[in-house]
Design a binder for these strands. Sequence first.
DNA 1: ACTAAGCGGAGATATGTCCTCCATTTTGTT
DNA 2: AACAAAATGGAGGACATATCTCCGCTTAGT
Lengths: 216, 216
Amino acid sequence: MSTSPAPRTRPLRADAERNRQRLIAAAQELFATRGIDVTLDDVARHAGVGVGTVYRRFANRDELIEVVLVGAVRRLADHAEKALANPDPWDGFEEFFVAATRDFAENRGLRELVLERHRGTADAFVDVRNGFQPATTTLIGRAQEAGELRDDLEPVDFPLIQLMLGAVTHHTRDVAPELWQRYVTLMLDGLRTRRDAPTPFAAPAITDAQFDRALT
Amino acid sequence: MSTSPAPRTRPLRADAERNRQRLIAAAQELFATRGIDVTLDDVARHAGVGVGTVYRRFANRDELIEVVLVGAVRRLADHAEKALANPDPWDGFEEFFVAATRDFAENRGLRELVLERHRGTADAFVDVRNGFQPATTTLIGRAQEAGELRDDLEPVDFPLIQLMLGAVTHHTRDVAPELWQRYVTLMLDGLRTRRDAPTPFAAPAITDAQFDRALT
DNA sequence: ACTAAGCGGAGATATGTCCTCCATTTTGTT
DNA sequence: AACAAAATGGAGGACATATCTCCGCTTAGT
């Protein structure tokens, strides 16, 4: 366990600050594409700085994760707030559901952090998560009271459903990064109370060749 | 890369054969619970034999996987055949779909091998898989022609859907191994062409406490 | 021009898997 | 019961990979 850099009194020197930003940008990209388990050596190389610089600036991976991903978590919360403003209960629910699925599809690190919690999560995240839980619960409740969303669902079902959708992206990101759009439709059709016909898919199925390439 | 043990001419000595069976049994259990990436050292310890014995008996992990899991793959094929005998197209489809989901839920190694192909797959599996593909295609086609299964689905969608259901078990196996039964219902309701009301869930949601314990 | 801050990246440390080797034990045959 | 062939176990070497420190050198800022 490394010790945290002492709380700073003076601001960073210009070059140091520049390198810090480079590191954050590199981490942002690598966390999103390869997940939060990338090595810090990788992050350093990707940022074009030495490893020493990473460890001088961030106590450990968790600290870097926090700096890089709080924004993404907060964006999830924003989706929920925005969806609450939608006057139609089902549309509001669907709006949030799809937005969340997209965010998880586009950011593997976010998925791992919020849905799978691969690494010990810093307190900062617990706060943010608790912060937007009421909004999602309301979105769900409203849609259920309106009779549109099946009412035997509970809030805890939703992270698990997102986990399911995330699995598609996890395994097909390289061949069809938009494939989640197909299965999110399927899922929503399952979540509805009743329905006369299938909602058309927003994305085509992958080909058999793509499937073969995906599973490796 | 190790070389395969020379093709045997004589049968194994009694003690050798006994140890071989022990190894297979141990591997069966470990592959099912911990996946096909368990170390052969682990398998040996679990079987109560030395590591040397594993490597003497099996050229590499793939050979052991093959011996242990062909049976499980063949069982999948059997489910498909059996479901074809069901006179109702939708019931037949559902019967197979649920049986496959159960098998994948109960055997992590099978999931990894058939759905995620974590390791290079031996030819034996390709044969078995190709062997039961026609049956599943027929099951799907029948249900679509009967107007029960949404007809914009393609066969390649189903392994991906199974992947999604598998993700639930993957993350909650320790707290609620039967949870897949809840989401398989949801999924089937999404797959149907039309529906007046939700099909009741076969399993309750997990509690928040269980959810917290699951994500670690 | 001088000093404090910062830098890079080689390499020490730790962990973990794979697989071999051989002194010893067990089996099966005569 | 004696013997040869077969089989055993598990220590340990080879290899891979990640984490994090250290220090001689560079650079920013006054």
